[in-house]
Design a protein around this nucleic acid. Sequence first.
DNA 1: GTAATAGTGTCTCTAAGACATTATTGT
DNA 2: ACAATAATGTCTTAGAGACACTATTAC
Lengths: 264, 264
Amino acid sequence: MDDADFLASYDPRAYDPVAVTVDVVALTIRDGALAVLLVRRGHPPFAGQWALPGGFVVADGEDLPDAAVRELGEETGLAAGDGALARVHLEQLGTYGAPGRDPRMRIVSVAYLAFAPELPDPAAGGDAADAAWTPVADLRLTETGAQPPGTTRKLAFDHARILADGLERARAKLEYTPLATAFCAAEFTIPDLRAVYEAVWGEELHAGNFHRKVLSVPGFVAGTGGTSDAPGRRGGPRPRLYRAGDARLLHPALLRPGREDEVR
Amino acid sequence: MDDADFLASYDPRAYDPVAVTVDVVALTIRDGALAVLLVRRGHPPFAGQWALPGGFVVADGEDLPDAAVRELGEETGLAAGDGALARVHLEQLGTYGAPGRDPRMRIVSVAYLAFAPELPDPAAGGDAADAAWTPVADLRLTETGAQPPGTTRKLAFDHARILADGLERARAKLEYTPLATAFCAAEFTIPDLRAVYEAVWGEELHAGNFHRKVLSVPGFVAGTGGTSDAPGRRGGPRPRLYRAGDARLLHPALLRPGREDEVR
DNA sequence: GTAATAGTGTCTCTAAGACATTATTGT
DNA sequence: ACAATAATGTCTTAGAGACACTATTAC
């Protein structure tokens, strides 16, 4: 039997049904805090609860990253050809396929991680009853969370786990890639960049050391020669403007402070 | 409509068929070289060509890592309850779902990465006509490879890409995790560990500096007090024996030498 | 003996971090 | 004037890497 014979006799529907979906962990910085795009589900299961944007992959011809971009565009109201979506950094996060994670049927979900500069407020689209950028600090990400009840939101499906994995990935990638620039506008200042690191890592960084460190990494940032016009600051000289450099890895890396204890 | 109504009216087969498979990049050290487990396909498509071990996920109730272990066991002839398989480190590598990657239908494949100490020669099982540990140096992993033809093997599907991604993941994880100990027997020497690093990174390391570095990382290795009986070596004192320590991250990390150029 | 190897010591240079200092802005 | 901040300078210490050296084994 050669390939052609095999294809002719092959019936894909003979297999048990497994559906493939794409979920997106879209992160941005809003008001100095790390925020994730969430939608309120309009249909069962988990109707009314908040969840990551996502949906079924179109079986015929849609690549997985394309599906992720499509889902992101549906929830933010941005078209794929729009410049704002083109600036979004997208990478695969992982695949979640435990039996029972969706009550309807066996669903394997490929999660993507998106990093974006400040985007417009989302417009609910598709199946979503609502959509909003939500500070991650307002979310309960562990079963044993110690947050005060009422102020936290629990996510549908296993999306709390997916989001937690995405946050850890983001925190780690800030260390050894210039990913932080993906959260900034095309031109930014070193203090802007430091604000991104502080929001994602949840720690204050020493301004002087951070400044010198960023400039010492080859290709991290490139000066434009201009200076910020400094709106809304509380004094001090005008910071210089930079663009993202051509480095794809930071060498040496910017390591998170105080991680010796988390090692075991 | 509540959840129960929705489930009753839901027909999973109404969706376009997408099949989910699991492929395994199983790495080990054989004769001092990094080797990957490959099977020769017994059926179309790509009958007769070498490929990564893998297969369809059982839709009803099999978790994805379980499917990966099952596929690995089928090809190596090791039972899941066997101690050898229990020592294998398994982690998800990524998911590959480009349309057309399989000529039969839309197939989304979840790839897993397995690290094992020296395992027995595989026994062909399942659909495989043959199975073998193959040194990765004998494989053509890029389309524009400069290897001499005839000495290289080309893999089926997009498995060359999956393997290349797995190798890069392995090389990176040696830097900041104690993963190298997963390639060693329960007790090993520092030179054994150095041989793992050299095989995976493809570079010779300075023996003295490596030794001091490994011992300086808290929790990387723990001494047993014993010494190797040193069979087959070419002279020198008996090296001391160690076991894997309790660290899950190496701090500080063991960085690969000479990566400054690959940064842009 | 000779060669190879395990393990340790020493030196240099880079880089991280704590801290100080100067200059420039808003209030 | 005062507070806040950008940007740079100084000092200490940890760590990576080059190299040397001793001790122990196989041949």
